[in-house]
Computed example of a mutant assay.
Amino acid sequence: MLAALLYGQEDLRLETVAEPTPAEGEVVIRVGAATTCGTDLKVWRRGGHARMLKPPTLFGHEAAGDIVAIGHGVTHWHVGDRVVANNSAPCMTCFFCQKEEYSLCYNLLFNNGTFAEYLKIPAAIVQHNLLPLPDGMPYALASMTEPLACVLHGAARSNVKPGDRVVVLGDGAIGLMFVAALASGLGEWHHSQRSAVSGQPFGEVILFGGSEQRLRLGKTLGAAKTFNYRQVEDVPALVKSMTEGWGADVVIEATGVPSVWEMAIACARPGATVNLFGGCPRDTSITVNTERLHYSELTLKGVFHNTPTHVRAALTLLASRALPFEHLISEEQPLAKLGEVFEAMKQRQVVKVAITP
């Protein structure tokens, strides 16, 4: 089969590899669509990831498709079932899993290889994070379950309250998903799996980014105000001018750039929560003013990945069509053009692309 392998920094190759066969407890799916992700772009540019993968390796982590083979012991799935698989599963037995802190699982299993014709799903993911697709749900839309699950997890950890003013720094797919979730009052989707938006937004969501096209999309997804940071001399000062001089109640950092982590902290009011969501390069450090951190009682949170509960909530939300997440998919391209797609992502010409084998 044709598959993409990452060998190192911006070294992505399409190669012919053996088709996977399922071991006990595993299934193999024929990929219907695999969506690109900002994390994929960062990994491609950096040549690796601290937790998810080490080159050379099969690449890509968002996909939906049809089951084509089933391993021994799999009883609840059948060939032909339409499914979406999260890219990970917790072990359910370690110290953190026993505390239901599944994103911190010490044995968190990751699965890569969605940019391919077929994808093998490990037994742990089959058991905990393989979900059936509702009838008629497009594969490309379902493929966004994993990133949206991460966003719902992040939103739930951000302490957003009704009436809060939230600043989102970053207009990539994750930042735009945060805008949609928070502007629509979905930060508490982890408590239920409702099929429709509550219609009770938390408050005002303000988006900062560097692309006029993406900022317009942010408006479509519910941002009350959008700003191109390239045209703003002092972002924290602008935030304070819009908040009676205090700063934002909640700040979401969604770029993974160390200087923007520091900017996020500077945008926060006393007592605020700063969600440092974007993953920075390995061994990165930032500077924090300890006096401000202490006397302003700031809450700084690093939030990582997702949980099985949020995976299910994300699929339910996508299937409901309550929010226009399909607008995040800029185009559809065949697997053979994956290299060109990543160059376009590097130039910020596209948000997400649906790759079809």
Rank of each mutant, 00 (worst) to 15 (best):
P258V: 11
I252W: 08
T287C: 06
I286G: 01
A266I: 02
T287E: 13
I252R: 05
M263A: 09
I286S: 00
E297C: 12
S285C: 09
T287Q: 12
G245C: 09
V251D: 07
A266L: 01
I265D: 03
P258L: 11
V274Q: 00
T299D: 15
G302S: 15
T273A: 00
S296F: 12
Y295S: 14
P270F: 01
G271L: 05
A272Y: 01
C267Y: 04
E262W: 09
G279P: 06
F277Y: 02
S285F: 09
V274C: 03
V288H: 04
A268R: 01
G247M: 08
V274F: 02
D283R: 01
T299H: 14
M263W: 06
V274R: 03
N275E: 02
F304T: 14
G256N: 13
V250L: 06
A264L: 04
V288L: 07
E262I: 09
N289K: 08
L276C: 01
G245K: 11
W261F: 12
R292M: 15
N289H: 10
E291I: 15
V251K: 09
L300D: 14
L298R: 14
V303L: 08
E291H: 15
V250M: 05
G278Y: 03
V303A: 10
A248E: 11
G256M: 13
V260A: 07
L298A: 14
C280F: 03
T284Q: 00
V260Y: 05
E262N: 09
